[in-house]
Design a protein around this nucleic acid. Structure first.
Lengths: 159, 159
DNA sequence: TATTGTTATACTCTATAACTATA
DNA sequence: TATAGTTATAGAGTATAACAATA
């Protein structure tokens, strides 16, 4: 399989300069690093990025329907089910049947869910400030605008 | 499980404004959209984002050791193994044993691997231009700088 | 003892197809 | 028929522990 070879490995650094020309590569690296740190931030609350986002949406939009929630978070309905299951089992949200349309559910945060959301949000906000502490306010604003622009363009391409 | 309820779902839109305050949320959405589109770009070449990146690094750093490559890409050595397996089976790269340190391997791209890398790079570059077409050159530069700053800060926090 | 590549494993995220109950 | 929620499943990415060969 691995035959011996005369090739001499370079002494020191490994250059990824060819990849660094792509914003997608920078985005992946930045997001992975941020995400790994955010996991640690949310761990004490028993939340992950997606369960926090889901809880936040339900707190902010009482009575929300799962299909609207999935669309709002840009995730598949099928994948949302187990996330809401988890939040419901922890009694952070309730699932009830809509009287208008008995196919649909209405999602509402419990008082406990609202409290956990508030506490976790403080930690997430602190994490967000920390991770962008190397940027000025104008730079933060420009970054946000650029990210939304890229999302819109990329979504316009694909599906 | 789902008991009936008096709650009336909101008529129209689902607001994620509370989440939009976090750059991490914008980054996740932007990266997911970009990544989904990049998958389609690389599909004709039989490559994924990680296999393309790995091939690029090996082309640019002949004789590279897997441990250095993993560090350069910020992925685990264990996860690199199957990626190199795949590239080796397709005869895009070769794995040979280093004569200096017989524990280590030397990775080299074959001519076929170099050609595939060049072709795929054209497509990736076009995709990158397309997805950032809503940004001016200064905005692109600022975005790149901000992403690298965030990566450095986030990695400084965690591991 | 420590490091390199490797194997095994587990968890998360994502995507698709198909089912049920309602409309 | 179409839609909402659900189930099942598969693929990809990521992380950790432990092992054999070598240093």
């Amino acid at each position: 399989m691995a035959r011996s070879a005369p090739i001499i490995p370079p002494g020191g650094e490994t250059s990824d300069s060819a990849l660094r020309q792509f914003i997608g590569y920078d985005m992946k690296r930045a997001f992975n690093a941020l995400q790994a740190d955010l996991v640690r931030t949310l761990e004490p609350f028993g939340l992950r990025m997606i369960t926090y986002s889901t809880l936040a949406m339900i707190v902010q939009n009482p009575g929300l329907r799962p299909s609207h929630l999935a669309a709002g978070l840009s995730i598949e309905r099928a994948n949302l089910v187990v996330i809401v299951d988890e939040l419901e089992q922890r009694e952070l949200v309730t699932r009830t049947t809509s009287l208008q349309d008995r196919r649909a559910h209405a999602l509402t945060a419990t008082l406990e869910g609202q409290k956990l959301y508030r506490d976790a949000t403080e930690a997430v906000a602190a994490h967000d400030r920390l991770v962008t502490s190397g940027l000025s306010d104008p730079e933060r604003t420009a970054l946000r605008r650029a990210l939304r622009q890229i999302e819109a363009t990329a979504r316009g391409q694909g599906g």
